[in-house]
Design a protein around this nucleic acid. Structure first.
Lengths: 334, 334
DNA sequence: GTCGACCATGTAATCGGTTGCAGACATCGT
DNA sequence: ACGATGTCTGCAACCGATTACATGGTCGAC
């Protein structure tokens, strides 16, 4: 109660004094116990116990010339797709004693400037880039710490990456629809420039032509991965005199918006219109009809990306590129 | 290209040497330009420009005895409800030059220990607690930086808080259903111990008795805020010989799971069963039927909480408690 | 012409740890 | 008995900034 002085927390010097040793010994006891004798170790540990000491992270990291943190740049933290990847990253970073800091890249021009400040060796030991629309010059500055790209990739940026098998997933989706007897297959895409969209493009095209099916441009609608884009795509399709019988969506949110809008228009999914999504977000399982989709192991992707970054930080560069397999999850929407 | 030495980034000493001044002057030029003469300032700035210098954040913060970061403890980052609150926090923290670090509190026992490490003055200048199930002793340790509670509150923890008007929202929801002619109203709650649940409990009870309606225990089902809990609740209701005609859900995810399960069972929402949710997450607007719900201004809640924390960090303690108004959003599910 | 006020700048302590180097001491082989 | 080796510990430099204090110079007032 009493002391209303500025609350000075206990330092390594306090512990050293109480234990009757030097600060060096305290430091060694804590970070390399085998280096000190048993008696000293006991004395130090008891002093630590008594004072409730815990090392100042800033001071430690300053001396060690590292920040103890990794920065993840994601387009939209609020998107559940990303947040589970982040959780996976957190798993392995925590285990390695590193913080995960998260920055949203979609925060206007002021934000751009902040990103440059953040993507700095004095801020973060490494960078996990989840946004393919980032400027590659950001990552090419000398101040920028090592980068691993996750899911999306920045055009022209030659950095290691962990990406899902987008082409394979899209092909599986098409094959599934074809297997169900569909020949009139449309698509709702992500933004044309997006690297996910491009990967799924290529799988879609391959699978369609493999099945001898024609891609009808008026059935391919560009969206932006949002619920709203799915809605809009559905309205577009409904306005067509000649409609597809099935739609493949580049993500589950658009698929959900699409289905919802079809239902509102009185169509039955899957009878009047089959839908396949991509991602398998939590929601998809709980829709009616439950969404048939391509599952990405998001948590695993996060873990793998973080591990790859740790490898790079340790100077290893075993794998510079990993393609994570995806899996068709058959439910009721197709 | 050439130098393959360890990449020593430029320090304030480099800048000082190039500008022909002392490091103190460089520091002053950068943090308090009015203090140095025009000529010196120009020299320093040009040296900064030339070297691309930017200050080492760790060193600065160590000296200033702050960490430059605020830690948010959320039960589940992947939940869109929280992530938008986090985004709001990020808005005001960024403006104040503080980092937002996010930690997930639902990460097993190992996580508990980590939280204790994180909730430390040497890690974060302040704490934003979004999880009411946290142990209050965590926040009562002397090492713990100032805390602001957000949305949920920890029982017995006397810290400033920003909470939504849960009771008012629940009462609005009931009033809306009553206005639509419903007298048989059930409810899907959050965990009984949760502070949100309790707030909504009280509003629910008040409004029910104000309308002269009886609360039927078999129509009140405890959930955990997940889609799955909504599903389960629906199955329970469907098994009842005597069913309610309307359900109020403590959040939108459960409402969504509930609706989906009712639809799968062949019921029509809202004809056979009206549903009102709470939160107004992005998804709700895009369901079919679109969900009638209570909107919480989540981004604003995040902003307010962060501002309140900043006030505390500055020693101000203007407001210790804020209740944020909520709003009924009428759509098609009731 | 001298004194104090004031401004701009440099010197050096400081934040709180880590770690290279060297000294003290014990043990061991010959 | 003596040097060699090895183990444990302390001293002090260091990480890269900020800032209290001291200093030197300029200027106006008396």
């Amino acid at each position: 109660m009493a002391k209303d002085e500025a609350h000075r927390s206990t330092t390594i010097a306090d512990v050293a004094r109480i234990a009757g040793v030097s600060t060096a010994t305290v430091s060694r006891t804590l970070s390399n116990p085998g280096m000190v004798s048993e008696g000293t170790r006991a004395a130090v540990l008891s002093a630590v116990e008594k004072t409730g000491y815990s090392a100042n992270v800033l001071a430690r990291n300053l001396r060690r010339r590292r920040t103890g943190g990794v920065l993840a740049l994601a387009p939209n933290i609020a998107n559940p797709f990303f947040s589970e990847i982040l959780a996976g990253m957190s798993d392995v970073l925590d285990a390695a004693g590193l913080n995960l800091l998260v920055a949203d890249t979609h925060i206007g021009e002021r934000g751009r400037q902040r990103l440059v400040e953040y993507a700095d060796r004095s801020r973060a030991d490494g960078l996990l880039v989840l946004d393919g629309e980032l400027d590659k010059t950001l990552a090419e500055r000398p101040q920028c710490p090592p980068v691993v790209q996750v899911c999306e990739v920045v055009v022209g940026l030659d950095a290691p990456r962990v990406v899902a098998d987008n082409a394979g997933g899209a092909a599986d989706a098409v094959a599934h629809l074809v297997g169900r007897g569909h020949a009139r297959i449309g698509r709702v895409t992500g933004p044309a420039a997006n690297s996910l969209t491009r990967g799924r493009d290529s799988g879609f095209r391959t699978a369609m032509s493999a099945s001898g099916l024609e891609i009808r441009p008026e059935w391919c609608i560009e969206g932006d991965f949002s619920f709203g884009a799915g809605h809009a795509a559905a309205r577009h399709v409904l306005s067509l005199p000649d409609r597809p019988s099935a739609m493949f969506c580049d993500n589950d949110e658009m698929a959900c918006g699409l289905i919802s809008a079809f239902q509102r228009a009185g169509l039955d999914v899957p009878t009047d219109m089959a839908v396949v999504g991509f991602d398998d977000i939590e929601l998809s399982r709980h829709l009616t009809p439950a969404l048939t989709t391509i599952r990405q192991p998001r948590r695993q992707i996060g873990r793998d990306a973080a591990s790859m970054l740790l490898d790079r930080l340790d100077g290893r560069r075993d794998a510079m590129e990993e393609t994570v397999p995806v899996e068709l999850v058959v439910r009721d929407s197709a």
